[in-house]
Design a protein around this nucleic acid. Structure first.
Lengths: 339, 339
DNA sequence: TTGTAAGCGTTATCAC
DNA sequence: GTGATAACGCTTACAA
């Protein structure tokens, strides 16, 4: 069990610990002969530097901590792809943790990440309060993805949720829909701008808004749909909280005997692999997830490497029309048009 | 930036460093008064113990490293759910890393995990060679999920892939299918037993086996399907490598004008949330993913806490029939029955 | 170019 | 109960 230490390698190579240290960090000021000897001794012993001891002594770290809001949501997997590629290219390693969309658990997950004294931290769609984020930011550089917060201490990488929702509403309105409901992301991050975009677009079209409380999961989407159908006639179109949520909405709709898109049109958000699947063919709002991950990593690394000006990125989403939206039939509840 | 240290807390509370250490580990042998003073000083300073320094000094760790083969595959998200719950309950923290189903990257990911000197490591569906796993096992307890390897040094938690595939074939044969192809998981872990189960079941039914090379992703499923259709008439049924793969298969099938299940039946593997979705309704083989995660965590923790006998779990899969399988039409290629 | 010695923030072993 | 003091594995001036 006891792994070999630098001391062991030094002894075997007949040099000092410091020299081994230099070789391990491939310093150029080591004679080729000694370097070879050290490398060979290390190989024979199966030695690998102790990352923790190293960072303890050097006060530096090549670790970037990543909090993933929900491992079940494919959107974050894509953000991680971008994050991973950029971090790897810059010589940083990623360490993940997840909080399962629960504020208390996320808080512990962030603390756990921070206890390793990472060079920086990326929070993907976190639901923790702003105060927790501020605390983290006092410790090391922090970048938020898919979450906003009033602060210049953290970097932000988001899509413009307000525009994204408006895109969805405009598309539905152009198809002739007037009874368009929005399923709300609740406490989830980015729910507010999406809701606002929906409301603004609805009023712009002179339509009455209907916001249904929900969450960023398929089960919540299904539950909210059932509650909605129990309370009132179905709208002719639904702008879901996200793709994952939309899938639950569609399932509950069909379960209730309503067909998509013949009876009800549904629009998702995120354009995950889920939406693209032929069997699902979800009309959705595309977020450039991989790019967002890359930008987040770059912002973090810039901060780590010396200052780096505050980054507040707001990427433009776009609409991807597939097969869950169509013109409304002459049914559904009659929308009372505002004004 | 510079976070407070134990020294700072000790000074502020007017006690020694050692006493602060005792309080932080909530030792019972500290007088209530002093404990209170230390706790308050720590709170005022926003002090949190340095995990690395702690583990360096104590030669212990409460961290369990987890390598996730593919963040895009929902199966692993479920395994993580089980792992997380069990680890949390036992006072361990999880740290993740991913290798994107690439052996070289996975190898680095494992090394990275190991450089934190975790108490143990869980490898979920790893594709690294057995030698790498053996090396890791020499360092700390290792548990493999969804991957087998000949060794008593590591714990194993798997489902019985041979039986699982046989279940799928039996189901299709009972429906009247004779031209049943299997999409192979390739280099992916657990591909071999699933393939073997398929082959054995086919020969048991007196049918000719057809193994199509593929991988555990939707894009591979689609690609393999296109290649298959270009080379020969479509079989009447396909046993896909896993759910993710099956989704690609279905997409390519429909793209080619074939309907599921009218023209071709498709069976997945894993019973992920994907399969359960109403729109997909995939007939699939259920693996108790959450239980597997829990068992893996328990095995690891038992090893960490003192020996723990070798665990080689082989859970029984079961068939979940949904709507992608049906009796064959009198078309498809005519299977030349063996014997 | 290479070796010596002093930390890094914590735990652990002793005395007091 | 509480407080020095020596590790832990490594980096880093500084000296040789």
């Amino acid at each position: 069990m006891g792994r070999p230490t630098m001391e062991d390698v030094a002894r075997r190579a007949g040099v000092s610990r410091a020299l081994v240290s230099l070789v391990m960090r491939n310093s150029p000021q080591v004679s080729p002969g000694r370097r070879e000897a050290v490398l060979q001794a290390a190989a024979e012993l199966g030695y690998a530097p102790h990352a923790m001891a190293r960072s303890l002594a050097s006060h530096t770290s090549t670790v970037l901590g990543v909090l993933v809001s929900d491992l079940h949501n494919a959107f974050f997997a894509e953000v991680v792809d971008g994050l991973d590629a950029a971090a790897r290219a810059a010589g940083f390693e990623l360490v993940f943790n997840t909080g399962c969309r629960d504020a208390a658990r996320e808080q512990k997950a962030v603390a756990s990440l921070l206890s390793f004294r990472p060079a920086g931290v990326a929070l993907l769609g976190p639901v923790v309060p702003a105060a927790t984020i501020a605390t983290a930011a006092a410790t090391c550089p922090v970048v938020l993805v898919a979450r906003t917060v009033r602060s210049t201490a953290v970097d932000l990488v988001n899509d413009d949720g307000r525009t994204g929702s408006a895109l969805a509403v405009d598309h539905l309105a152009a198809l002739g829909h007037t009874a368009i409901a929005h399923f709300d992301g609740g406490a989830g991050s980015q729910a507010a701008p999406r809701r606002r975009g929906y409301q603004e677009a609805m009023s712009r079209h002179g339509l009455e808004a209907l916001v249904v409380p929900s969450e960023y999961t398929d089960t919540a989407g299904a539950r909210s749909t059932r509650e909605l159908l129990a309370a009132r006639p179905a709208p002719t179109a639904i702008v879901a909280a996200n793709d994952y949520n939309a899938v639950g909405v569609i399932a509950a709709l069909e379960e209730a005997g309503l067909r998509v898109p013949e009876d009800v049109s549904v629009v998702g958000y995120d354009n995950t692999g889920l939406a693209a699947m032929h069997h699902v063919g979800l009309t959705t709002v595309h977020q450039p997830a991989v790019d967002m991950g890359r930008l987040a990593a770059e912002a973090l690394i810039a901060r780590v490497r010396g200052g780096g000006s505050p980054v507040h990125r707001l990427l433009q989403p776009s609409l991807v029309v597939r097969s869950t939206t169509a013109p409304p039939r002459a049914c559904g509840f009659t929308a009372s048009t505002a004004r």
